[in-house]
Design a protein around this nucleic acid. Structure first.
Length: 625
DNA sequence: CTAGGGTTAG
């Protein structure tokens, strides 16, 4: 699933992603960005870099609890497995079902699910008796292939074959439902299992349902189930807790995550593991809570838990997003020192970090070094670099990159195309963009809502609002047209081209469609009204926001303020500033300079300067206005 | 003897 549009993907892989969409909008609308998180001036990681080096003195011994393995479990490549299978079915008498199960399991571990299903089918044809074990493996394969319904069909076979489905089989099916986002069905099945006493749920089954609830964003219910299982005598373990901790972190509820973490450790005496720490560290990184990240790393070390490959990748990513590529490089060095091998993701992240800083030649150097490291760039790596070139307006180099993908036997995916489209629009090459769009569809890539937004936004920004509207109407009633972002883009485009009536109609349309305007939609509409001098209407809309449960944010206030100032309407300015102060909002450079101009011109009273001063963020103080 | 659940990422 392409998830690369957004740098901050709090709810990765979950149902709904409103937050990421907002972030995307941030990216699309550079003109609105002004509340970036200030970087700490001191290096927050200096303390634990030392920590890593100390930790690296510990030997990196792997656990050695390996029992002797049968030859069926030892098979590590598919060809060997298939050969062995053929040999097994020739034998008379046939090998036991246990041996077949071991082989099936080995194939599943290699993630060759459809192959495993094929073997399973053959077993049944030949008449190897299948049991609970083979059934659960086969069902797992169905589920992993997003064919949970086929899994249920196999469950039917269980009954016919007098195989009694057990807690393993039902857990697998529940997991399949969760994987396909069929949470309600999962809940229903779970309740049925308990009510009809079809099996006694154990810790794995409870954890699976907890995962489902978390995936649906229902942390409260997930925690309730955690309590319930405990009450029913099924002790939650570290996995049950990790599931919830991770979910809370993804939902920005880090402090709740800490609460559950402490409960796990201090009340239940369950030891956290590296996964627990990775979840929390990742959550903290997403919020730039560096000191706590540092603390957690220290704590890990004290507990004798080594950071693993994923811990390092999280840190590399965090540093890159903060623009601290040198630190990211340092983490990679430590990683190597400790015997972990950075993979293509690690380096792609690094490339992205350099691109973000506009250091394209360094990004390129990393890219070019991949082959010598024995790594093969994939589509995503190419797209990262391509994205960098686009963002830094080097469209020629981006195009070269784009062609390089096909030359190397890879297929540009929907994200690659969308990135390239965005780049072309950004430099005003609409014709080329439209041709690329045709090529994309010719290659069988179906544009998604993000591609669609890029195209509409691109057209609008190049003064082709009519064109954008006709694309919009062409797509008609599809789900693409039930997207609040799309409406916001069009409303913005229409406003900027002086088509206020069109903008108003669109704004009206979306309420008719039952779509809820968000704070951006309101801001864009208010900005448009102000641009036409319709201050009363703008003010009315602004006041409606609180009533509609969509309170104005920083941007809305600035937009309205600018509207007042540019239209020489000074009556409400002080009131707005006071409201901003009350809500803890701040002024950006543009609005501030407009205000100061008016004070200088005598249109605004000097007494307001004090209020303005309070609204200026610290980092703006340093730069002269 | 053999089967089910939790982490990161471009």
């Amino acid at each position: 699933m392409p998830m690369r549009y957004f740098r901050h993907q709090w709810r990765r892989g979950r149902v709904g992603n409103a937050t990421s969409a907002l972030h995307d909008f941030h990216k699309l609308k550079g003109n609105f960005i002004s509340n970036s998180v200030p970087l700490p001036s001191i290096n927050p990681f200096s303390s634990f870099r030392l920590g890593f080096q100390l930790a690296s003195l510990h030997s990196n011994s792997s656990s050695n609890g390996d029992r002797p393995r049968s030859k069926f479990q030892k098979v590590t490549n598919l060809d060997d497995a298939l050969k062995l299978f053929d040999e097994m079915i020739q034998r008379r008498p046939l090998p036991s079902v246990v041996q077949f199960n071991q082989l099936l399991n080995a194939v599943t571990k290699m993630k060759h699910f459809s192959c495993c299903l094929h073997l399973f089918k053959q077993m049944r044809v030949i008449g190897v008796p299948v049991d609970e074990y083979s059934m659960s493996i086969a069902i797992k394969c169905c589920c992993q292939l997003y064919r949970t319904n086929d899994g249920f069909a196999l469950l039917g076979c269980c009954f016919r074959r007098a195989v009694v489905p057990n807690v393993f089989i039902f857990s697998t099916l529940l997991d399949g439902l969760v994987l396909e986002d069929r949470i309600l069905e999962a809940e229903r099945l779970f309740k049925k299992l308990i009510k009809q006493r079809l099996c006694e749920p154990d810790v794995v089954m409870y954890s699976t349902v907890i995962k489902g609830l978390c995936k649906f964003g229902n942390n409260v219910m997930a925690i309730a189930l955690l309590r319930l299982m405990d009450e029913r005598g099924c002790k939650p373990n570290v996995v049950s807790y990790n599931t919830i901790i991770d979910s809370l972190c993804k939902d920005k509820m880090i402090d709740d995550a800490f609460k559950i973490f402490k409960e796990m450790v201090f009340d239940k005496g369950i030891l956290p593991n590296v996964i627990t720490y990775n979840s929390i560290i990742c959550g903290l990184c997403n919020f730039c809570r560096w000191e706590e990240v540092s603390k957690m790393l220290k704590e890990m070390e004290d507990e004798g838990i080594s950071p693993d490959f994923q811990t390092f990748n999280i840190l590399v990513d965090a540093f890159c997003k903060e623009g601290k590529v040198d630190e990211a490089e340092a983490v990679i060095d430590i990683m190597v020192e400790r015997g972990e091998v950075p993979d293509i993701v690690t380096y792609s992240t690094l490339i992205d970090g350099y691109c973000l800083r506009g250091e394209m030649s360094k990004a390129r150097t990393v890219f070019d070094s991949l082959t010598s490291r024995g790594l093969v760039p994939d589509v995503i790596t190419y797209s990262s670099l391509l994205n960098g070139y686009c963002k830094n307006l080097n469209i020629e180099e981006a195009m070269l990159m784009f062609h390089e993908i096909t030359k190397n036997g890879l297929k540009p995916d929907i994200v690659t195309f969308s990135t390239m489209l965005q780049g072309l629009f950004r430099v005003g090459r609409c014709g080329a963009a439209c041709r690329l769009f045709d090529e994309m569809r010719a290659q069988g890539q179906v544009p998604d809502e993000c591609t669609y937004r890029i195209i509409l936004d691109g057209l609008c920004n190049n003064h082709q609002v009519e064109e954008a509207l006709s694309v919009f109407h062409l797509v008609g009633g599809s789900k693409l047209n039930s997207d609040i972002m799309v409406y916001t883009i069009l409303i913005d485009g229409a406003c900027k081209c002086g088509m206020l009536d069109t903008a108003r109609n669109l704004f009206h349309d979306l309420t008719v469609k039952g779509l809820q305007p968000n704070v951006w939609t309101y801001s864009v509409m208010i900005s448009g009204l102000c641009g036409e001098g319709l201050l009363t209407e703008a003010k009315q809309l602004f006041q409606k926001m609180d009533e509609c449960g969509c309170p104005p944010n920083n941007v809305t206030f600035r937009v309205l303020l600018q509207g007042y100032l540019k239209n020489q309407n000074y009556d409400d300015v002080e009131m707005l500033l006071q409201q901003m102060d009350g809500r803890g909002y701040s002024l950006d450079a543009t609005t501030l300079s407009l205000l100061i101009d008016q004070v200088a011109a005598g249109a605004l009273d000097r007494s307001m300067l004090k209020l303005m001063g309070r609204l200026v963020p610290k980092d703006l103080m340093d730069t002269p206005v």
